[in-house]
Design a binder for these strands. Structure first.
Lengths: 170, 170
DNA sequence: AAGAACGTTCAATTCGAACTGAATGAATTA
DNA sequence: TAATTCATTCAGTTCGAATTGAACGTTCTT
């Protein structure tokens, strides 16, 4: 293929472009680099595996970005490396089951966070009681804050009991 | 109170500082300005309403930031304006029931997004079929992408059915 | 072993969101 | 009505995250 020598076969399909857009926007929304979502979107709509160079070229990003982004996605098990016969470079395919992705996200990010937030609430409650004992706050002032903390604690517990249910459901 | 003339009664309690920290971190995590979470945290641990000046002073942020942040929180019903007798400036208190906050967040942000994402998936599926009809993709290539889109659609529907349940539960 | 082909790293740069603060506008008081 | 007290807006700035691209190390080819 001589005609692909210079910068070649970009040519994204409409479906790919939409998916790249969607992935980018979603990631952007939740505070993940846009390029990460774009890579996922591109691979999601690619019937065959793509190399790092393919990705960088078609998205118009640097190889560095592509490398970082794919690594991120790999750690989340959102994509997989595949070896292609007769090819030296690694290729990537999506793990299209987003349910798994969500479940592992919960396990790795949400769950530990929920736990440490529970500890934090305890710490704040302690601090509050101390200020009360030191007379820095009147009885009624302390009461107000204590009530609020209890609400927070209730919500926290509900979340902790809800999320495992959701996890199984998805 | 003459001694508060210059820049005065900052003096945050330990409980307040922890809560400010927690709110700031949480917001930062989900892509909301840190200052917004800090304002919420401060008010959460304040037994009495605070004015915009109080907030700016105690958090060490500008009045502009405070104004923007409180407005944001007001639109989410996370805080309320209260009028205090003999005071000209508005004061703010938290709406400590975070359950409500979550519910309205779902209604105002998640729900419309889920809907438009559903439309988007349809659009992509259409685009894909068109590329198929134009012969730009082989039958089997098209198949792969179509399968993935179906998975996405299934997940999307599950989410749509799950979230209302969670909404009532919290 | 030399050279080429890849992937990764990291210092420098770019880019955009958040913040500031002066200016503006609205409301209140004298 | 003029002066004062607040809240809001917005143009400019700051700051941090994301991206770049050159340099490096590794693995394959000849």
């Amino acid at each position: 293929m001589l005609d692909t020598a210079t910068n070649s076969s970009a040519a994204l399909s409409a479906a790919q472009m939409e998916m790249i857009e969607a992935g980018g926007r979603l990631c952007q929304l939740i505070g993940v680099p846009r390029s990460v979502g774009q890579i996922y979107g591109l691979l999601f709509m690619s019937p065959y595996p793509l190399s790092l160079d393919d990705i960088a070229e078609r998205l118009g990003i640097s190889k560095g970005s592509g490398s970082t982004g794919t690594r991120q996605l790999l750690t989340w098990n959102a994509i997989r490396r595949v070896w292609m016969p007769g090819e030296r470079r690694d290729h990537f395919v999506v793990e299209p089951d987003l349910g798994n992705l969500i479940r592992s996200t919960y396990r790795d990010l949400l769950k530990p966070r929920l736990h440490s937030s529970s500890e934090r609430i305890e710490r704040i409650a302690d601090a509050l009681r101390n200020e009360g004992a030191d007379g820095k706050l009147s009885e009624s002032e302390l009461e107000v804050c204590a009530k609020r903390l209890e609400m927070l604690q209730r919500l926290q517990k509900k979340l902790q009991s809800l999320i495992p249910i959701a996890e199984r459901f998805l």
